[in-house]
Amino acid sequence: MTLKTLAGAVSAAALLATAPAAFADHHGGGHSQTQSQQTVVDVAVGSPAHTTLVAAVQAAGLVETLQGPGPFTVFAPTNDAFAALPAGTVDTLLQPANRAMLTKVLTAHVVAGRVAAADVIALIEAGNGSAEITTVSGDTLVASLRDGSVILTDENGGVATVVTADLSASNGVIHVTDAVSVPQ
């Protein structure tokens, strides 16, 4: 089962009953589930912790797409996550000649459909401890739980932790991660 499949299977009532109403302000914007008038791009633009992600989305030409109707689920790495990549990686990805590679990296963080934290946890439980998530890029993230946190493992063995979940937008939801997931 994929997140896309589960997104339609979990009832809205179950999500509202299990998802927290608001989350810690991880990135200075005071975001909560009630912030539904902004797109996923608008939410990211308003976050001082996501300036690198926003610059990358702009360089890849994905702003218009991610401002579309969606819905989208975005696993959004912070500036610190991008800074942890090997020296020069971000600068290389932002070069116009590397737009296809940048697009692949970014779309490896996007899932078609609105997938709340409760959906991810339900998928993990249904999968006996792990669940495969197919991203828009066609890559796979494996979600699991560790010490109460959702962990995403990319196809290269890289691990990202969801540090803030369920930042709601008019066209989807954002889950903030502490690492960049690298596609194959």
Rank of each mutant, 00 (worst) to 15 (best):
V41N: 06
L16I: 05
T135S: 00
M1A: 14
A9W: 14
P96E: 15
V176A: 07
V176Y: 01
A55W: 12
A117Q: 09
S168D: 02
L145F: 04
T34K: 12
Q33D: 07
R114C: 05
V173M: 00
P48N: 12
G138S: 06
G68N: 14
E125N: 13
A126K: 05
A117V: 05
A126I: 04
A112D: 09
S36W: 09
H27A: 13
N156T: 12
D80Y: 06
P20M: 08
T51M: 02
A87R: 11
T34R: 13
N79S: 05
A179R: 05
K4Q: 08
G129P: 01
P48L: 10
D147A: 15
P48S: 12
L141I: 06
T134N: 04
A84W: 10
P48Y: 12
T5I: 11
T153Q: 07
P77A: 08
A60H: 04
S36T: 15
S32I: 08
D178I: 12
V63S: 12
T107E: 03
T18L: 02
L16K: 13
Q58M: 14
P96Y: 10
V63P: 05
A9H: 13
G129R: 07
P20Y: 08
V162H: 09
P48Q: 08
A81C: 08
Q95E: 14
A21G: 14
D154I: 09
A12Q: 15
G28E: 06
Q95P: 04
L62I: 15
V180R: 02
T18D: 05
V110F: 06
G172Y: 01
P183H: 11
E64H: 15
A126C: 02
T89M: 10
L62V: 14
A160K: 01
A122D: 01
A118T: 06
P48C: 07
D119I: 03
A117P: 00
Q37D: 15
S149K: 10
A126M: 06
